[in-house]
Amino acid sequence: MVHAFSDADHLPNRRPDGQPASPERLPRQRRGVTPQMHGRYPDFDAMSQQEHWDDATRTMVVSRVDQVPPIRFFTKDEAIALGILLDLALAQDREPRVPVLALVDAKLLEGKLDGFQHDDMPPDPETWRQVAAGLDATAVQHGFEAFRVAPTGVQEQIVGAFAAGELHGRVWDELPCAKAWGVVMRGALSEFYSHPWAWNEIGFGGPAYPRGYAVLGPGGREPWEGEGALDVDPVTDVRERGLE
């Protein structure tokens, strides 16, 4: 199916069920990596542009991709529960995955904070641990031994209630649910969307110093920026360009 993205009928708010169109309709990434290998810019690989980046930025971004830290802050049980939570919250349902949990773990281990803490919340590192315990407690309410052994449908239901601020009982009587969701998602989105694989998926140009930009108008792009691929038929396009 060819989908012209000048239309907006793929967006949740524009669809009767409020759900997005399936990502399976998107082409597979042909250059570089995207999370789950689908995206809108299949020939754009931000990492291929690194010769145009300044040294300080290149060092930081390359190490973000190449050096996945081991889990050291979370316990094994916490890591399993939180890993499932993050996969569902970010819709990372298969490899390749941006290693969000490992990147969050490293940030918490280093004690990097965001500069504020709600008066009815523990410090962010403690919030993450309590969320793991809270997911397990909620799974027990559903009749399962732990969050990790609940069926996927139940896990999704629990994460949905977490996102809606509607988890109650046990841990959640002490931990404000909506604010805890905010802490978790702020951390998760920061790691996911700072990863070049996610930039490939959404067609973000990435670091831009010292090169800068010249083409600012509507519909414009620099020669090296990714082309929105689904304005063309991916099957014939791949064949015509000899990319198979």
Binding site: H10, A21, V159, M185, E201
Partner: peptide, 20 residues
């Protein structure tokens, strides 16, 4: 996107739509 209430596949879809 998150503040508008989207997460999971819906969030990813709005994110893929960033350039529009």
């Amino acid at each position: 996107v998150l503040a508008d209430g989207h997460w999971g596949q819906a969030l990813r879809e709005y994110m893929r739509d960033y350039n529009h």
